[in-house]
Design a protein around this nucleic acid. Structure first.
Lengths: 144, 144
DNA sequence: TACGATTGTATCGTGTACGATATATATAAA
DNA sequence: TTTATATATATCGTACACGATACAATCGTA
């Protein structure tokens, strides 16, 4: 048993480890299309709905704008998105997909399909897992 | 539904988010005793068994030594551990708890107890969750 | 014994992630 | 209209996290 002896600590350690391994499983595949995992997640939100503000993206990612801003600048530098000040409210910056950024979706879906298959989990089991994780998350940070 | 539309992506997003929220729930409490979450996890391994090598700690944390080395140096700078070259094998560096580092265990356990209570999960449910995460993790990176 | 390969740790560069803070814009109040 | 407050984003400093690489110590084999 290579985990902390206290039962309390095992639970948090397990989620910590699971996140690491998922990231490590994704990283080499995503690297082939020049993305990091957070960049991929961010693009996923944009593929679902284009032209979101920095704040909206940060809120949905559960991150701060000071994390998302440089990430978006890298996506912009790589030609996947553009960033434009809002005309209505000049404080806001809206992120738009480029053709190149939209074209990545097909490749990314292929990668995700590969990972999910590798997980060895059938859909009902994955659903239950996701539900539990959501409940856990919401209990820990109910303000969101 | 503030998540990616594709079912595939939801699962990985859920673990990603859960890890973030657990970290964010821990961070303010750990800050009171001057630790980050990875530092806390590392100390947990040392509280369980003292005098482990850098490589052993990295392997159990699922991280690379180039991540663990600076983390351990910070723990050393803060007076929680010492690092000593092995006498038998001089390539190895063994990490030992100081009295101060050992004294943190009581405070840290109190924090963890608080978090687990906040999670709102009874032990059998947590056990099931941990089992699923372990299976998922192992499927994704079976080489470990 | 010598020497090539392996092992254990550390260094460097890049990319998240967050707290604290700054800046500009927008809104509300006086 | 001026002032105060709130909002949206960005900047700065610190701490992970990893790939690539460097280096010294050790081991294996000739």
């Amino acid at each position: 048993m290579p985990l902390p002896s206290s039962a309390d600590e095992m639970y948090c350690f397990a989620v910590y480890t699971a996140w690491h391994r998922i990231n490590r499983a994704y990283a080499p595949l995503l690297r082939e299309i020049g993305l990091t995992y957070p960049q991929y997640i961010t693009l996923t939100l944009l593929w679902e709905r284009d032209a979101q503000s920095v704040g909206d993206l940060a809120q949905r990612l559960g991150m701060e704008t000071n994390t998302v801003t440089p990430l978006l600048k890298r996506l912009q530098a790589d030609g996947h998105v553009t960033r434009q000040r809002g005309k209505d409210d000049k404080r806001k910056v809206f992120v738009h997909l480029t053709g190149q950024g939209r074209a990545l979706q097909a490749k990314a879906e292929e990668i995700t399909r590969c990972i999910v298959e590798q997980s060895g989990f059938a859909l009902p089991k994955l659903d239950a897992l996701v539900e539990q994780l959501k409940t856990l998350s919401n209990n820990l940070t109910p303000q969101d």
